[in-house]
């Protein structure tokens, strides 16, 4: 049993009188994939934003094991440390690629940005690494100078993945990375993510309303409803043998093709 990479304790967030999420706690081990599932408005995205330090919790905290092995409370990091962590050791693949990419900058520039942010100042090396990553996410080398505005939805998501993984992060957050894509594109993207996650030993927190995505990618599942975690466990166990009535409803609501 290894020490956890990420620890969330008692995360609570209100939006005025409304509840975003309440008292969420979990541990994430290195290389572990955790899916957060639930219907729209159940607090999944709020929770992800809290983990990503994009929102401040009303109470509770998130701690992360830094590369030097020390567990640090993310709220206690300086702004410079926090941002450095986000762009090197963490990744965030967003539902809307336009929010996770620079749409006016070429694919190569998008992938290279993190490298340049980390101090890379050799054009040839940056471009070489960018090409290498585009290849890994199955984007043809001759598209390296095209901006993502000329990419299809699936390509944009793959470009986001390359952009996030180029610095060798240990934790990647994903917010509905496959929603809005047609099923064959979804399948290829999921296949790619699964391959990369296994190959690189990434820890992932993935938010999805699609139970098939959770089943395919994750080791563990957390089911949320009305801002609270109502069930958690191994993916197969939760999806095949749900204990909570709400989870049973979720699972039985999936249409069989």
């Amino acid at each position: 049993m290894s020490a956890p990479l990420l620890q969330a304790r008692g995360l609570t967030k209100h939006y005025g009188a409304r509840l975003g999420c309440a008292d969420v706690s979990f541990d994430l081990d290195p290389g572990e994939v955790l899916a957060i599932v639930g219907e729209s408005g159940s607090g999944k995205s709020t929770l992800l934003s809290l983990i990503a330090t994009e929102l401040q919790p009303d109470s509770g905290h998130v701690a992360y094991r830094m590369r030097d092995g020390v567990m640090r409370n993310l709220a206690a990091l300086s702004e410079a440390e926090r941002r450095a962590l986000m762009r090197t050791d963490w990744g965030f693949v967003r539902q809307d690629a336009a929010k996770g990419l620079r749409m006016a900058v070429s694919a190569g520039g998008n992938v290279g940005e993190r490298l340049m942010g980390a101090g890379a100042r050799h054009y040839g090396h940056i471009r070489g690494t960018a090409l290498d990553w585009l290849n890994k996410v199955e984007i043809a080398a001759d598209r390296v100078d095209d901006p993502p505005t000329r990419f299809s939805g699936g390509m944009r998501q793959r470009l986001q993945i390359a952009r996030n993984l180029v610095t060798g992060p240990r934790l990647v957050l994903m917010d509905e990375p496959t929603s809005g894509l047609d099923v064959s594109v979804q399948a290829r993207l999921l296949d790619l993510i699964r391959g990369l996650v296994a190959e690189l030993g990434l820890a992932v927190v993935i938010v999805t309303h699609d139970l098939a995505v959770a089943r395919l990618l994750s080791h563990r599942v957390m089911v949320m409803r009305a801002g609270r975690v109502i069930e958690t466990g191994l993916t197969d166990q939760v999806l095949d043998d749900p204990a909570e009535p709400y989870t049973q409803l979720l699972v039985s609501s999936v249409l069989a093709a």
Partner: peptide
């Protein structure tokens, strides 16, 4: 880093 993204785009 962003400033260099601009220069990168130029060269590309």
């Amino acid at each position: 880093g962003l400033m260099h993204v601009k220069l990168y785009e130029d060269i590309a």
